[in-house]
Simulated assay, not measured.
Amino acid sequence: MKTTKTRFCLKSILASSLVMGALATTSAEAATVLRIASQHAPDQYASEVLRDIKKELEGAGVDLKIKLYPAGQLGSGEQLLGEAVRGSIDIVHSFVYSHKDPVLEINSLPYLVSNYDEMEKVFSPGSNFYSIFDQRMDKIGLKLLGVTAEGFIGVMSSSTPDNYKDTGAKGQNIRVWSAQSAKLATQDMGYNTTTIDWGDAFPAIQQGVVDGMIGATPEATYTTFKEAIKNYVPYNAFVENYAYYASKKTWEKKLNEEQRKVVSEVFAKAAAKFVDWSRQNDAANLKKLEEFGVAILPISDAERGAIAQEIRNVTWPKLEDRLGKDVLQQITADLN
């Protein structure tokens, strides 16, 4: 009798275990796995935010499982964009390149914004810039989830430029990246320019090949270039900006309505935090540069605003053929 009861109990336990295992397997299979790739190093603020996003999405109770791939593990920014269009990567946090649509280069417009209030307005849903960016990304198969503004870009140099408070000739030749908008704007600001890759910029400044460079936030200037320079002008000429975006194939075929709502809300909230972080991070790193011995050449809001207006008046028309006159007019309206 005891043996029979024992066998019965064992069979019951085994049956219960199989049922529970089947339920667990079904639950695991039900979870939607999202591959999220980024360009930021694991110790950067943006990566910290992505880790928080992972926790929020997985804890939202909508059956999402997140796999993070930071620091370009799945490819360059251009490659990530292509893979997202194809649907092999679900969500990306990276700079949006314009190789699939030249109008996307509006994210590299010189003096698109010149202060943090403008930054918050223009890079948020509701602005003309955001609407145009959203529409153009949609056309190539991507769903915009948010724009992250990660700091203003100024000019660093190994000597003091002439006329640095206006657009007069600076008497300097500085490194610029390959975008046409960057070349034109820097020249219209009064600098001579030479195109040099980021990785070659430090030795180029140190060896006197160029007098300085444009293309780095205060943070990047401090962490990478401080030993090679003597001055930094916080022109706020460009914004170091990235975007959260999803594959439309993922958005439309892989996620249900409840999951899409959660993903939209979580990424929008994360993107909205970046302006305040940029304001604090830029200020903190300008202070670090000063403490290291790099002179922060003073420029007032009025002087910076005058330079910004001149670049919009002089440089932007040169970009009409590439970006469209109507597009530039709509973006200009954001600043009024």
Rank of each mutant, 00 (worst) to 15 (best):
S114I: 09
K67Y: 06
S94Y: 08
H40Q: 13
A22F: 11
L57F: 10
G61S: 10
P102L: 12
A84M: 11
K65W: 08
S27Y: 14
P110C: 14
H99C: 02
K100S: 10
L23Q: 01
Q39R: 08
S76N: 13
A37V: 07
L64Q: 01
S27P: 02
L23D: 01
H93M: 07
R51M: 07
E58D: 08
V33W: 04
I66R: 01
V85L: 12
G72L: 13
Q73A: 15
E48F: 01
V103P: 09
K55Y: 02
I106E: 06
G82E: 08
Y116P: 03
E58R: 00
P110I: 12
S38L: 04
E78F: 14
S38G: 15
K100W: 09
L112N: 03
P42H: 12
P42T: 15
Q73C: 12
Q44L: 15
H99Q: 08
A46P: 02
Y111F: 15
K54N: 04
L57W: 03
S27N: 11
L80C: 14
I66P: 00
E56N: 00
G59Q: 07
S38H: 12
A24E: 10
P42Q: 13
A60T: 10
G59T: 09
P70M: 05
G87Q: 06
S27K: 10
Q79C: 04
I36M: 11
S88N: 13
R86T: 11
A46R: 01
V62I: 12
A24G: 12
N115H: 11
P42S: 13
L57Y: 04
G87E: 10
V92G: 04
V96L: 14
G72R: 11
D52C: 00
Y116S: 05
V62A: 01
S47F: 06
L74G: 10
Q39D: 10
Y45V: 04
A46G: 06
S76W: 14
V49G: 00
V33I: 13
S88E: 12
N107R: 02
D117F: 07
P102T: 10
T32E: 00
Y111I: 12
Q39T: 14
R51G: 03
L34S: 01
P42D: 14
S47C: 10
I106T: 07
L23T: 01
S47G: 09
A37R: 01
